Amino acid sequence: MPAHYSLSETEEAVKRRLGDIAVRHDALAAVSNIHRAASAVRQHLENSALRPAGLTWSAFVVLWVVWIWEEIETRHAASEAGISKGTLTGIIKTLESRDLVERRQHPDDGRRALLKLTPEGLSLMERLFPAFNGEEAFVVEELAPGEALQLADTLRRIVTHLEEKGEERRGDLLGDEPVPPRPGGRRRSS
């Protein structure tokens, strides 16, 4: 049995498994392929553009967010990067040890912290991003002219839909029940 299946093999296996189960196959295919594409793109960018700079995907995304916003609260950086505050803490420690990011107390509230790139971090992003973008261009080079922008617009509509209506949908599905916490790696001892 092969350890890795092609996209076509996986799609055929899904068709066999689902059989006559009444599902929206178009939605299944779209969301599955969003996930597959995101994973493939992330892996390619980590292995091509980021590894030579000694960065993980998450560390790069944090640097990107701080670079774009110039100075940002840690809680907003975590949200923009799509990671937990705990994960951000570990990434920031690593980036601080490499003198790429500096953290300081918020002037209005000592419980909050602000992030800013150091001159070394700024220099790294100015050198790294053109190479990163070159790999982004490689990722979409099989698309016809205009298709990359059309894809970006389609994905933007999905994200906007979830931003605008996702909470309401979760409320409809869960009612008054609170969203259960994400399962962690450690289990509570009894």
Rank of each mutant, 00 (worst) to 15 (best):
A49V: 01
L50H: 01
L50F: 06
R51W: 02
R51E: 08
R51H: 10
R51L: 04
G54C: 15
L55H: 06
W57E: 07
S58R: 10
S58H: 13
F60L: 03
V61N: 03
V61I: 15
V61A: 04
V62W: 02
L63S: 04
V66K: 04
V66S: 06
W67Y: 14
I68T: 15
W69P: 03
I72V: 15
E73C: 14
R75K: 13
R75A: 12
H76G: 01
A77E: 03
A78W: 06
G82Y: 11
I83M: 06
S84H: 02
S84C: 02
S84Q: 02
S84R: 09
K85E: 10
K85A: 08
K85N: 09
T87I: 03
T87L: 11
L88I: 05
T89P: 05
G90E: 02
G90V: 03
G90K: 02
I91T: 07
I91F: 01
I92M: 13
I92S: 00
T94A: 14
E96V: 08
S97M: 08
S97V: 07
S97K: 06
S97G: 06
R98S: 00
D99C: 04
D99Y: 14
D99F: 13
L100T: 02
L100D: 02
E102H: 10
R103W: 00
Q105H: 09
Q105P: 13
Q105G: 11
H106T: 01
R111K: 08
R112Y: 00
L114Q: 05
K116S: 11
L117K: 05
T118I: 10
T118P: 12
T118D: 04
E120V: 04
E120H: 02
E120Y: 04
L122W: 05
L124N: 01
M125P: 04
R127I: 00
P130W: 10
P130F: 01
F132W: 09
E135T: 03
E135R: 12
E136M: 14
F138I: 04
V139F: 07
V140G: 04
E141A: 04
E142C: 06
L143E: 11
G146L: 00
G146K: 03
G146I: 00
G146Y: 01
E147K: 14
E147C: 09
A148S: 06
A148C: 07
A148K: 15
L149K: 12
Q150M: 11
Q150K: 15
Q150P: 09
L151E: 13
D153L: 12
T154Q: 12
T154K: 05
T154S: 14
T154H: 14
L155H: 05
R156L: 11
R156M: 12
I158G: 02
V159H: 10
T160H: 13
E163L: 04
E164W: 01
E164C: 04
E164T: 07
K165G: 05
K165N: 15
E167Y: 15
R170Q: 11
G171H: 14
D172A: 12
D172Y: 13
D172G: 11
